[in-house]
Design a protein around this nucleic acid. Sequence first.
DNA 1: TCTTCATATGAAGAAAGTTTCATGTGTGAT
DNA 2: ATCACACATGAAACTTTCTTCATATGAAGA
Lengths: 116, 116
Amino acid sequence: MKKVSCVMGMVKKGMNETCYRFFSTLANPTRLAALENLMNKPMNVTQLAETLGQEQSMISHNLRPLVRCRFVHVERKGRERLYSINHETIDPLFKVIENHAVNYCPTGGKCLERMK
Amino acid sequence: MKKVSCVMGMVKKGMNETCYRFFSTLANPTRLAALENLMNKPMNVTQLAETLGQEQSMISHNLRPLVRCRFVHVERKGRERLYSINHETIDPLFKVIENHAVNYCPTGGKCLERMK
DNA sequence: TCTTCATATGAAGAAAGTTTCATGTGTGAT
DNA sequence: ATCACACATGAAACTTTCTTCATATGAAGA
């Protein structure tokens, strides 16, 4: 992440780097789909890969940043690993996003295509 | 955005594309710094460029997705444009993120570097 | 109209992130 | 100890996104 100088506002120092990591972790269709599926129930890598129709190694690679940011928890069960959503963060997060979409993007994420 | 198949969970249909656009708009240090500075007060492009120590055209380019997603509002004032934060969304959004950081990333965004 | 100021835009090169493929690691079962 | 299963990891190829530079647009003033 390239540093950009700034006057500190309400956000604590160091917060921008954290935000950058968080948002870039979420800015990926595979990881969003994984999160969405984990909402239903905890799953292991193989199950997720099957559900999403993706290679196991791809799922593994993509789960890593989600775990690193603690958006999902992981628990070992014998030789598999059970991944589950961190509802404490993810639920309110998606609530904010959904609320924003309802208020500002009535056409479904299309928003303003051009500035006038 | 490449589509990834998924079983629909709590998130409405079409929500993943919206989320992807939102999060990728936020996943950029320049745009995060711009948001942070706009928290203090509305600014025009030139002021933002000066504050952030970046080229005008870069700021312009980066403001565009923020406006498109409606994270910032823009208002014409003669020949300049005044950009301001959409506090209704941004405030609760950063509150969620900050709360998560406090609970799960005590060392300041470092989180888990490796899985064990 | 001509000039200047403020900002937007297009395109090309640079950088960052993603996917794939091959392989490594660890656990449980025989 | 050996095998198979579940998963992680590394590196290269590929794709997407960013930044820069040059230029265009549009409003205000002389």
